[in-house]
Design a protein around this nucleic acid. Structure first.
Length: 584
RNA sequence: GCCCGAGUGGCGCAAUGGCAGCGCAGCCGAUUUGUAAUCGGAAGGUUGGUGGGUUCGAAUCCCCUCUCGGGCUCCA
């Protein structure tokens, strides 16, 4: 369709077209295999393409091989791909046996629709294709999954066939290799290998944090606590179990009771708290507040429980039992914008200090079901957007994705295999101050309604650690490393000295272990390497003589023999400057 | 919750209707070692379920159920 020859197009455009055309060729193969198949939509994606089908039976891995072979035949024939605009009536005739296509045609505003074909195959399509089926590049059918028609769970579930497609076989192989490497950083795998946590069918979605993982967990909490000191937050602990009236007041009961752990206690309906905001609002409402106390920044790390639907659970990144670095800010209208800006800066700072890279920032706007007055939402949405832009960052708008009580910013980061997870969030509350009847006494002696912000920096500690473990590949910065150094005695006669080294360094507040097992030194080094321990302190006769240790770091560098007090100095310095993590 | 797939010692795997096996880890013993795996030995599972069925016989086939994996949907 384009006047520019395919080979002269920019590479991204070529790849986009190859992926799009491959989806057509896949649909062609599926229709050959199942003449009664109904086909839905088939767009290009990041690593290839997919196509959704309604088929008489589930596809098997063997089917994928057969389909792929048929696709290659179509490539071999090098058929021209042609397209034209046709009338909707004509399209309805062409696709008379294809209910999904007919539904798509009904949804198109224009008078005509795109119609593309190659060989016997035809599709409803707005275009963007290679010139022929011979130009597809290197592809491979990847997997089959379920997907609802039009992404709505009330609709039938279709079978989605995913394919990988890259310009050359080398690019495809490189992608597959990179994906295998990424799987080695999967937090579920590293959680086991590094003895950080495990998940058990006895408590689905509720991690058991092992001693080493708990060091990581607590390390992050302490880090955030230090920031709270600096930013003027006050930490509180509120109940785990509340009467449901609390959530009826906040509106959560009406919106989320399906996903709450609720139970009868005597005559009363009670529940495990799924979030902290209602508790904080209740606390605020329980006393009188002067404008002099504001902004009041309430923080809480206690445990939350949400009965997430079984199919959504995923390692640490989607759990039922978790804690957040959660906080709510109550302030005067005059203070409000300053609080938004300051919190945005705090989030930005933490991500930078943890070397997480730039998040994808999304602005969630007013949803279909919402609290408050519609006209109040827009200025608040604008405030959030301006805050991002003024900080020199970018955001995308997610229409209707705000919380029911207000618009929000979401900070998304990718895991090892490229799935995106929301960590931090900054939310404006248009509802709870009113629903809880919150007031403070202003300078004028009259009662006023405070404004309210919700925010979490790491988000859920569990999810954060899931993403962070993958981001670091388990090579944690020294300040978070569960074991900061392991002392390796060369022979049994050096164990006593190794313990001396351990206690000297422990006295500096460092986490030090001694490997006094029966292994040879080489095996102990290997073990420590596999555990990604930052430092290995080898001690033998020479070191014992010199009050020193031979230092090896986890990159394998031999730093030579260093006096113990110097090792302590260096490690304490590295810990306290929170040096950025070592790359895997 | 929905679709597809998978569950075998702590971990990674084998056994495809006919005696549940291997490697690593762990344990015991020997070895005392200079920067990524010392040698030997013994032990460990009624195969997710004190589920149901088919069969002379089930890890293997069927049903139920639970959990996990890949997606979809949802996410205060």
């Amino acid at each position: 369709m384009s006047d520019v020859p395919f080979d002269d197009l920019p590479p991204e455009e070529r790849l986009f077209r190859q992926r799009h055309s491959a989806a057509h060729v896949l649909a062609e193969a599926v229709l050959e295999m199942f003449p009664e198949a109904k086909y839905a939509i088939g767009p290009p994606v990041d690593n290839g393409f997919y196509y959704d089908f309604d088929l008489p039976r589930p596809l098997t891995p063997d089917d994928l091989g057969v389909l792929e072979a048929r696709m290659r035949q179509s490539v071999e024939r090098d058929l021209p791909i042609t397209g034209e605009q046709i009338s909707k009536d004509r399209a309805r005739e062409v696709f008379r046996d294809q209910p999904y296509k007919l539904e798509l045609i009904d949804g198109i505003e224009e008078d005509t629709v795109g119609h593309f074909r190659h060989g016997e195959f035809q599709d409803l399509c707005r275009g963007g294709h290679t010139e022929t089926t011979g130009q597809l590049g290197a592809f491979k059918l990847d997997r089959v999954a379920g997907a609802y028609w039009r992404g709505d769970e009330k609709n039938p579930m279709l079978q989605r066939v995913y394919g990988l497609l890259f310009p050359t076989p080398e690019d495809l192989a490189a992608y597959e290799h990179q994906r295998e490497e990424a799987e080695k950083r999967d937090h579920r795998r590293l959680g086991r290998e590094l003895d950080l946590f495990h998940l058990d069918p006895i408590a689905p979605g509720s991690p058991f944090w092992h001693p080493r993982g708990t060091v990581l967990y607590n390390g992050l909490v302490e880090y955030i606590r230090e920031l709270y000191e600096e930013y003027g937050y006050r930490e509180v602990i509120t109940p785990q179990v509340f009467g449901v009236d609390l959530w009826k007041t906040s509106g959560h009961y009406q919106n989320f009771s399906e996903d709450m752990y609720l139970f009868e206690s005597g005559e009363e309906e009670m529940g495990l708290k799924p979030m902290n905001c209602p508790g904080h609002c209740h606390y605020f409402a329980s006393g009188h507040h002067s404008y002099r106390e504001l902004p009041l920044r309430l923080a809480e790390f206690t445990r939350l429980h949400r009965n997430e639907r079984s199919g959504v659970l995923h390692g640490l990144t989607r759990v039922r039992s978790f804690a957040q670095d959660d906080a709510h800010i109550y302030c005067t209208p005059e203070q409000f914008e300053g609080e938004v800006v300051s919190n945005f800066a705090m989030l930005d700072r933490v991500y930078s200090e943890l070397a997480l890279g730039e998040p994808e920032i999304r602005l969630g706007t007013r949803p279909t079901k919402f609290a408050g007055n519609p006209e109040d939402w827009e200025p608040m949405e604008n405030l959030l957007g301006e805050t991002v832009v003024n900080a020199g960052k970018e955001y995308t708008v997610s229409p209707g994705e705000g919380a029911f009580y207000g618009p929000k910013l979401e900070f998304h980061f990718k895991d090892a295999i490229g799935r995106s997870w929301q960590l931090g969030t900054l939310q404006i509350d248009m509802a709870m101050p009113q629903s809880f009847g919150l007031t403070y006494i202003g300078e004028d002696g009259a009662e006023h309604r405070p404004m309210m912000l919700h925010r979490a920096v790491l988000g859920s500690l569990e999810r954060f650690l899931g993403v962070y473990i993958e981001h670091t590949g388990g090579h944690f910065p020294l300040w978070l490393s569960p074991v900061q150094a392991v002392v390796i005695p060369i022979a049994d006669r050096h164990v006593d000295y190794a313990r001396t080294v351990q206690s000297q360094l422990r006295a500096r507040g460092l986490r030090i272990e001694v490997d006094d097992g029966p292994d040879r030194m080489g095996a102990k080094i290997r073990k420590a390497q596999l555990q990604k321990t930052p430092y290995m302190l080898v001690v033998g006769d020479r070191e014992a003589e010199a009050d020193a240790a031979a230092v090896r770091d986890r990159t394998g560098d031999d730093l030579g023999a260093i006096p113990i007090f110097q090792i302590g100095d260096r490690m304490v310095d590295e810990r306290d400057t929170r040096t950025i993590q070592v790359r895997p």
